[in-house]
Amino acid sequence: MNCPSCDVPLVVFDVPVTYRDYIPEGAERAGLCPECLALAAAEDAAAESRFERITSSFPTDEDAAVPLAIAVGLLDSLALNRQALEELLTDVESAGVDPLLVLDRLHVQGGTNPEFDIERRRHQLTQLLD
Rank of each mutant, 00 (worst) to 15 (best):
A64Y: 07
V108Q: 15
E87Q: 14
G110I: 10
G111R: 01
N2M: 08
R82P: 01
I118C: 05
G110M: 10
H123Q: 15
D14K: 12
V108Y: 12
E87G: 09
A41G: 12
V17L: 10
A65S: 07
L37P: 03
R53Q: 14
A64F: 07
E52T: 15
V11S: 11
A95Q: 00
L129E: 08
S77D: 15
V72T: 07
D44S: 09
P114I: 02
A84Q: 09
P59C: 01
R53H: 09
L128E: 14
L88T: 03
L129G: 03
L10P: 02
T18C: 11
L125Y: 00
T126I: 10
L128K: 07
C3H: 05
E115D: 12
A40Q: 08
S77A: 04
A46N: 06
V102L: 04
V108L: 15
V15K: 03
E86K: 14
E48Q: 15
E62I: 02
T112V: 02
V72W: 07
A38Y: 13
G110E: 13
N113Q: 12
E25V: 05
L89D: 02
V12W: 00
A69F: 05
Q124C: 05
V66K: 08
V108H: 13
M1R: 11
T112D: 00
V12A: 02
A47I: 10
T112W: 00
G73F: 05
V97S: 02
E87F: 01
V15S: 07
A46P: 05
P9V: 00
D7K: 15
S94P: 04
E28N: 06
G26W: 04
D76T: 07
A41W: 03
C36M: 04
P34V: 03
A45R: 15
V108S: 11
D76L: 08
V72G: 09
V17A: 13
G73R: 12
E28C: 12
N2C: 08
A38T: 09
S49M: 12
L129C: 04
L75I: 04
L85D: 06
V12F: 10
Q127G: 15
E93A: 12
D14W: 09
L129A: 07
D7L: 15
G73V: 01
E28L: 13
E52P: 09
P114N: 00
E119H: 06
A27Y: 11
S56D: 11
L89R: 03
R121E: 06
P34M: 01
A42E: 07
D98N: 12
L100S: 04
L106E: 07
L88E: 01
P24E: 07
L103W: 03
V17G: 06
P34G: 06
V8E: 04
Q127Y: 12
